[in-house]
Computed example of a mutant assay.
Amino acid sequence: MLGREQVEHDPDRQETLFQEARQRFGPGQPARPVEQVEAVTRLLAGDDGLAVAARILRQVADETHAAFLAQAPGLYERTGHRLMVNRRNYRTGWRAVGPHLRSPLFALPSGFHPYVQVVAAVGVVGGQASRCGRVTDPYPLLAHLFEVFDAVTAGWEFGGVPVDVDGATLAMRLIGTTRDLRAEMGDDAPPLPPPVRELMRRNNTLAVHDSAGRPIGGINLGGELRPALLT
């Protein structure tokens, strides 16, 4: 079970780290995504870095939800489908409207990119899962991790978003971090959200493509989720 004793925070340092992670990194930078992920991970070392990683994930989850809501009126005008936006289950809405719903993850107002800052933040949380209860509230953090996972994977299945190597890396890191955080919660871990339970009942393999669009492997989300979250 996650410890309840809180650590001291340095708000000024956390704000500096947050802005540095936002401004110094992203798709417009010359370094490859994997190199930027390593740099952001180093930047977010320690308890203040862990708090910033949790803040990044909260902001990405909030901005994703807001972007889905903003698309709803236009979707109804174009398609006649009413988009029901549920933060705990994006799959339902995306299944109804298919590729008419755009993934907001690559154009968030904050500038955080799923393959750079988000991958790094997820890894920081997973690497310090045992300290999350001392640094932040782990329950909304876990919910945000699952929301991002749902937005990523539902886009693959219903939105025509290609499954590339970086996206598969993000999904696998999300699975591992939710596993580790739930393990720290023990018997207090909340129920798994509906999209995860739905994927666990399936055994589909999605093709993973390289930067040129060539298939180079596959990812079976149900096959990855079951051993991670049911044991």
Rank of each mutant, 00 (worst) to 15 (best):
L43H: 12
A121H: 04
D48S: 11
V40N: 03
G93H: 01
N86A: 13
A121D: 04
L50N: 05
L69W: 02
N89S: 01
Q6P: 03
A51M: 01
V118H: 07
V119D: 04
T64W: 00
P27A: 11
Q71H: 05
E35G: 12
V37A: 01
A31L: 15
G26H: 06
T92W: 10
G111F: 06
R58T: 07
Q29P: 06
A53D: 11
N86Y: 10
P114S: 07
R22H: 05
G26K: 03
M84V: 14
V60K: 03
F25T: 05
R82D: 13
Q59I: 14
Q117A: 14
Q117R: 05
R95D: 11
L83Q: 06
T79L: 14
M84A: 14
T16C: 03
R95A: 13
Q19L: 13
F25C: 06
E35W: 01
Y90P: 00
Q59F: 08
G49E: 10
Q19G: 05
H81D: 12
P109R: 08
E8V: 09
L57I: 01
R24M: 10
T41L: 13
L101S: 00
P11I: 00
Q6K: 12
E35V: 14
P104M: 11
P104H: 04
Q6S: 11
R58S: 15
P114Q: 10
E35I: 13
Q29V: 11
L50S: 02
A31H: 07
L44I: 07
L43A: 08
S110N: 06
Q29D: 07
R58L: 08
L43E: 08
P99L: 07
A53F: 07
T64D: 10
F112S: 01
A31E: 15
Q36C: 02
A54S: 14
H81S: 10
E38S: 15
P11Q: 02
A121W: 04
P30L: 11
V7E: 10
V40E: 06
Q23N: 14
Q36E: 13
L50Q: 07
S103R: 06
N86G: 07
P73D: 08
G49H: 03
L108K: 02
P99V: 08
P11D: 00
L50Y: 00
L57P: 09
D12P: 02
V40W: 03
L17N: 00
V118C: 12
Q19W: 07
E15F: 08
A21D: 07
T41M: 10
G74M: 10
V40L: 10
S110E: 10
T92E: 11
A45C: 07
A67M: 03
A51E: 05
T41N: 09
V52P: 00
